[in-house]
C-alpha cells in the first residue's frame, strides 16, 4: 500500500461513496497518523463517507460498525483509492 495508488483524499469522497485507505500525507503529524490508524483508518481498510453536514463542518465516515467525524485538516491528509478492494490491495 502506498500513496501512489491514491486517486483522491478522504475529504473528497461524496456521501455514500466508499474507498480504500492507501496512506497519509505529510501534513498530518505522526501522532495523529497513529491515532487515526488506531481508529481503524489503516492502509487497506475500506471506509465510507456517510454524511456531509455542510458549511465546512467535519464530515462523518464509517469503518465497519464504527463512525467517526474528521475535519478537513485530517480528512484531506488521508489518501484513498476508489478502485475495487481487490484492485486497491494489489
Amino acid at each position: 500500500m502506498n500513496n501512489a495508488l491514491a486517486d483522491k483524499a478522504l475529504w473528497d469522497l461524496r456521501p455514500g461513496e466508499a474507498a480504500t485507505v492507501t496512506g497519509f500525507g505529510d501534513a498530518l503529524s505522526v501522532s495523529y497518523q497513529g491515532r487515526v490508524m488506531e481508529f481503524g483508518f489503516q492502509p487497506g481498510t475500506r471506509v465510507q463517507c456517510l454524511l456531509n453536514p455542510g458549511f465546512g463542518a467535519p464530515r462523518v465516515y464509517g469503518i465497519s460498525n464504527s463512525v467517526f467525524s474528521l475535519d478537513k485538516e485530517i480528512a484531506a491528509a488521508v489518501f484513498v483509492t476508489t478502485r475495487p478492494p481487490q484492485e486497491a490491495s494489489s
Binding site: 481508529f39 463512525v67 467517526f68 467525524s69 474528521l70
Partner: peptide, 10 residues
C-alpha cells in the same frame, strides 16, 4: 492547532 477527530458513539 489540534485537528478534530471524534468518535460518534451509537
Amino acid at each position: 492547532e489540534q485537528p478534530f477527530v471524534l468518535e460518534l458513539p451509537p
